[in-house]
């Protein structure tokens, strides 16, 4: 098994940012296209907030890198999508989107190409269902967004509109399980997550090494933080790669809650907390970037947190509150 040690999470986060801004960028098309993408299944170690080095696997941009999660893909409804998976590891892996594509087992050292046509706009998780759920938890997962044909600002045809969009993938990490998989064995202990991430990163509060460094700090990373001015309605496509149920709580504005687990909600509820199911739950919601309604005097700028209200996920290594899966919202 090839092993590389990554001293920081930076390699992962930079490679997985969709653009320099971290937002998913998209130009509307009224025609279908052929989209081709190659991912390399690689592995390595990523330092956690308490300094512990933990083994991960990822769908990476190059053989020499490790992306946890993978760089997200965004395509048009009706596109022909071709994904080539190069398995550089000595174990069997796969590439699966439930309901859309399943590569089947990809043996050690093998390359497999799959082709599929997504016809339903929405948000999907691609992941490795081999050795389930371990390979997915090791980092073999990524976001896949399907835009409605010809649309630049809708989640589905006729949905409330947005002006920018992000993917948030949450994961929880039991280092004992990761160490077992690194040795090629199956975990034998009860799942006990000790680290918590959003798009592969944990946060670093003011005063901590790495605070404000977008390559380390989830509060500053462009793929996780929300940044906008009044009216910059932001679609967040939330995916739970982890095993724990999450409570996605945001300050400053309520969410417009659009879908849960792929189902379009019959009414748009305004919620400050969203119940993201464990084990691959998903939610789409818009953060409206309206003036915070309860401010006096009124304000249009400020900084607010997004955190998971089950709070255990706000820790690292069993302590270190503020070093977990959270990010910040910047009204600029």
């Amino acid at each position: 098994m090839k092993r590389r040690t990554f001293l920081k999470a930076s390699a992962a986060s930079i490679a997985s940012a969709a653009t320099a801004s971290g937002l998913l960028t998209w130009s509307p098309r009224s025609y279908a296209a052929t989209i081709s993408k190659t991912y390399y299944i690689t592995d390595g170690y990523i330092a956690q907030p308490d300094g512990t080095s933990v083994y991960f696997q990822g769908y990476s941009q190059a053989t020499g890198s490790l992306d946890v999660p993978a760089l997200p893909m965004i395509v048009n409804q009706g596109d022909t999508v071709t994904v080539t998976i190069v398995n550089t590891l000595s174990t069997t892996h796969s590439f699966v989107i439930d309901g859309l594509v399943n590569s089947g087992p990809i043996a050690a050292g093998k390359t497999v190409t799959v082709q599929f046509t997504p016809n339903t706009p929405g948000t999907y998780l691609f992941y490795d269902n081999q050795n389930a759920p371990y390979n997915r938890l090791m980092g073999l997962h990524g976001g896949f967004a399907v835009m409605p044909t010809g649309s630049t600002n809708e989640l589905y045809s006729g949905s409330p509109t947005f002006v920018q969009q992000l993917v948030w993938i949450f994961n929880d990490i039991d280092p004992v399980w990761h160490a077992a998989v690194a040795k090629g064995t199956k975990p034998t202990t009860a799942y006990q997550p000790l680290y918590f991430t959003i798009n592969g990163l944990s946060s670093r509060p003011p005063g901590a090494a790495g605070n404000g460094d977008p390559t380390i700090d989830a509060m500053a990373n462009p793929s996780t933080k929300l940044e906008g001015s009044i009216g910059d309605r932001t679609l967040v496509r939330m995916l739970n790669a982890g095993m724990g149920a999450n409570s996605v709580h945001i300050h400053g504005n309520h969410w417009e809650f659009l879908t849960k687990n792929g189902q379009i909600r019959s009414d748009v509820w305004l919620k400050d907390v969203l119940y993201l199911d464990n084990n691959m739950g998903k939610i789409d919601a818009i953060y409206p970037f309206e003036a915070p309604p309860d401010a006096y005097p009124p304000v249009t700028t400020g900084r607010y947190p997004m955190h998971l209200h089950n709070e255990m996920t706000q820790t690292a290594g069993g302590g270190l509150y503020l070093f977990g899966a959270m990010t910040d919202v910047y009204f600029v």
Binding site: D50, Q192, P193, L194, M312, T315, G317, G318, G319, L320, Y321
Partner: peptide, 10 residues
């Protein structure tokens, strides 16, 4: 837990 160490807050 704020300065580190595992006090079980996970």
């Amino acid at each position: 837990g704020t300065c580190g160490g595992n006090v079980g807050l996970n």
